[in-house]
Design a protein around this nucleic acid. Structure first.
Length: 774
DNA sequence: CAGTGAGCGAGCTTCCGCTTGACTT
């Protein structure tokens, strides 16, 4: 029996803390929230002051029972969840769910996992802060009301199973609006003049690159400039040197870690979090869901020691960073290595790389500024009095740059600073070549997962624990897709002046290539348009920031939580009712043209299952025909001819082995059908053009592949097969799949052994959770 | 999991934020 039960949020934290406290303390974890609103109903009592109907979450029932037993036996229960709104609610919910008594309960908080911090916390307990708990209730109830009233409205007006919410709908809006900006963007071009000059100083030949600050908006002006440089002398007019400084970036938060891992390692946001979780659980880094840039005294001390030892005292600079992020709650430290002296770790390759990034970033944040000298050289062109500028940069002291430099999202980052030779005013240079190259303006960059997180953080929308899930939600709902897009070839003009002769040529460049970028779908665009039209206040970029202010007022005891909700819900619910009654179907229907064969109208719109084309009017006596758009097509860009092509399916291609072969478009893309079996077309196959020969090839390829994945089959039971799948070997029987127990050799299985596995209820395929009727 | 989209009606879908495993074909 233990005297003291301490409950924290994370099991990894529990393990560490238990080491700091003596035998009198048992440390357990709540695994996050333990109570929530029921998923299947609104869960808010609108009539009675918006009282939330919290209940123990289904997956926490067992845990609560276990904690209850331990709490009963303990003399004192210490609620040690995080010191923020959500953490306070967790403590309150534990208090309720475990049936605790005030006399035997204490609330404690700490920001770092060190022995001193924990001991100090134990010595300074407090009571549950109900103002904070109410602020959380307001947050929870608001999100539920928005999500559970808007979503069903979308089901009725747009398409079933859609969703809307305070966070996800704004994320989608950002992507849709960026795409619109890109569509509106008009590309223009201008000519940029660069020069390569030579100079000999003390017998050494140097090359200097210079640029004309001004640009010419057409070819003739650029040509005129080059003409005017013919026969010119190039003299240095001035050399200006300016000292400059660079400071390191603050230690990682969740959002900056996701951004850097994306830029430098190419990890998706979800991947970064998965790897960070592994590092955290094995005790290598501190907690990875944080909005704080703060480092503990212990960490500062460790970093100082490592910097001194590895690079010397002149590289040390202890810094404390302040959070600028909107709505940051700072319940944790920044993300850092647990032990700074561990420069590398054991683990998978991706764990090593992410750890290396965290180690370098943390160490660099505690290092001296880099000192630079920036040099600007003006070169006078004698014939036209214009000035070319050469700029260079010299690092006088590298400081933190020795370890780490933050990446950039700027896609135009091609102008690198160079080192210049020792130049002085009055020196003469020889022109080797002057170039006027046509350069194009670029549209705003599409969002990557990580740059979207950055933007959301700036707007104060979402939390470290939700960035990754939100991004996966909007992709799962098919509001946006993450894709690569090939670029197109574009021509540009180049004029060159060499030996007082001007040459002109046209060259090619690839432009518009996109890698892992977020694109809005037709459905995402349509839902966004719906919400903009009827609920502009909810998807306003400032909505979250404004309600956050009110949550803060509640937390400070300056406002009553249900009053705040009432003020919001009144007008909001009225809008829901109005829209429900007065708005028609919101399908984005558009008349594309007339079918020359039938003379019927061709429409495109979003239907129950996604984007479709419709042949014939809905009101006409004859039922219109429908066909789904291909995944690569969009309502916005599809042509009449492409739309009409979609009605040519299913189409008979010919015969193979005495049965018909046809091609059709299905839910999962185009496929070939033969003997009731389906064969998917490759992305490179065009279903309009596909030949019977190619279709047969697809059928035979699939047969080969199936044969390779077959490990074993039995004559006595043709329904049963041992197969090799994506997750290793498994048994397929009567179209159901069964996992093979670990340690069993799949090739050595007998039919009897297989049947035993199939009959063992432990191996039965999991059924989908069937919800009870209300 | 594969040719769906009339209209009706039943029954379903849905939020954000805090945490980990269990599990997939």
């Amino acid at each position: 029996m233990t005297k003291n039960l301490v409950i924290v949020e994370s099991p990894a934290k529990a393990k560490t803390i238990e080491g700091f406290l003596g035998n009198d303390f048992l440390v357990k974890s709540s695994y996050g929230h333990v109570m929530d609103l029921n998923k299947t109903q609104l869960g808010v009592d609108i009539e009675n002051g918006f009282e939330p109907q919290y209940e123990v979450s289904p997956d926490k029932k067992k845990l609560i029972a276990e904690l209850k037993k331990l709490a009963k036996d303990a003399e004192m229960v210490w609620l040690a969840s995080d010191e923020d709104r959500e953490g306070e609610a967790i403590s309150f919910h534990l208090f309720k769910a475990l049936g605790l008594k005030e006399a035997h309960t204490k609330r404690i908080v700490f920001h770092e996992i060190t022995k001193t911090a924990i001991t100090r916390a134990i010595e300074n307990p407090r009571d549950i802060d109900y103002h904070l708990v109410w602020a959380q209730q307001a947050r929870r109830v608001l999100d539920r009301l928005v999500g559970y009233e808007l979503s069903p409205l979308l089901w009725k007006k747009v398409k079933p199973s859609l969703s809307a919410g305070r966070v996800q709908s704004v994320a989608v809006r950002l992507i849709v609006e960026r795409e619109e900006e890109i569509k509106q963007f008009e590309v223009s071009s201008a000519f940029r003049i660069t020069a390569v000059l030579n100079i000999s100083i003390d017998g050494t030949q140097y090359q200097v690159n210079a640029e004309l600050p001004e640009r010419f908006d057409d070819r003739d002006k650029a040509l005129a400039f080059l003409e005017s440089c013919k026969g010119a002398a190039y003299t240095i007019q001035s050399v200006e040197k300016k000292p400059a400084k660079k400071s390191p970036a603050p230690p990682f938060t969740t959002s900056t870690l996701q951004q850097e891992a994306s830029r430098k390692l190419g990890y998706s946001v979800a991947n970064t979090m998965r790897i960070a979780q592994q590092l955290y659980e094995s005790g290598k880094i501190t907690y990875m869901r944080t909005d704080s840039v703060n480092l503990s005294d212990l960490a500062l001390h460790m970093a100082k020691e490592v910097v001194t030892r590895q690079y010397g005292a002149q590289y040390v600079k202890t810094r404390r960073f302040a959070t600028k992020t909107k709505g940051a709650q700072e319940a944790h430290e920044a993300i850092r290595p647990t032990y700074m002296e561990k420069q590398s770790i054991t683990g998978s390759a991706e764990e090593k790389k992410l750890y290396d990034l965290i180690w370098k970033r943390t160490l660099a944040s505690q290092m001296a500024d880099a000192e630079l000298e920036k040099t600007t050289v003006s070169i006078l062109v004698s014939t036209n009095n214009k000035q070319l500028i050469a700029s260079g940069e010299v690092i006088l002291f590298d400081g933190f740059l020795k370890v780490y430099f933050e990446g950039t999202d700027d896609e135009n980052g091609d102008e690198s600073q160079t080192i210049l030779p020792p130049l002085n005013a009055g020196m003469a240079l020889m022109l080797r070549e002057m170039t006027a190259q046509e350069r194009f303006t670029r549209h705003p960059a599409r969002y990557t997962e990580a740059s979207l997180v950055k933007k959301m953080e700036e707007l104060g929308i979402g939390r470290p624990s939700t960035y990754a899930p939100t991004i996966s939600t909007i992709q799962k709902r098919e509001y946006v897709v993450k894709e690569d897009r090939p670029g197109v070839v574009r021509q540009y003009q180049v004029l060159t002046l060499v030996n007082d002769q001007i040459k002109e040529k046209t060259a090619n460049e690839n432009t518009g290539f996109e890698k892992s970028k977020l694109f809005p779908t037709d459905i995402g665009t349509l839902v966004n348009r719906f919400l903009c039209q009827y609920f502009d206040s909810i998807i306003d970029y400032n909505f979250t920031a404004n309600v956050e202010k009110e949550f803060d007022e509640i937390a400070d005891g300056r406002k009553e939580w249900n009053l705040m909700i009432k003020e919001f819900y009144g007008p909001f619910h009225l809008k829901i009712e109005n829209t429900l009654e007065n708005a028609g179907k919101f399908s984005g229907e558009k008349l594309l043209g007339v079918d020359p064969v039938t003379g019927k109208n061709v429409f495109v719109k979003v239907g129950r299952f996604g984007p479709i084309v419709q042949l014939g009017d809905t009101e006409s006596e004859e039922k219109p025909r429908f066909a789904s758009l291909k995944k690569t097509q969009s309502l916005d860009t599809i042509s009449l001819a492409e739309a009409l092509d979609l009605f040519s399916f299913p189409r008979l291609l010919g015969e193979f082995e005495g049965s018909e072969v046809s091609v059709a478009l299905g839910r999962f893309g185009p496929y070939v059908k033969h003997n009731n079996l389906f064969f998917s077309l490759l992305k490179t196959d065009d279903p309009v053009e596909i030949s019977i020969e190619r279709a047969i090839e697809l059928i035979e390829n699939k047969r080969n592949k199936d044969e390779q994945s077959l490990i074993k089959e039995f004559d006595a039971q043709p329904e049963l097969k041992v197969l090799n799948g994506r997750y290793g070997p498994y048994i397929s029987f009567n179209k159901k799949n069964f996992k093979i127990p670990k340690g069993t050799d799949p090739a050595g299985l007998t039919l009897e052994a297989c049947m035993a596995i199939v009959d063992d209820p432990a191996n039965a395929p999991k059924k989908k959770f069937v919800r009870k009727k209300k």
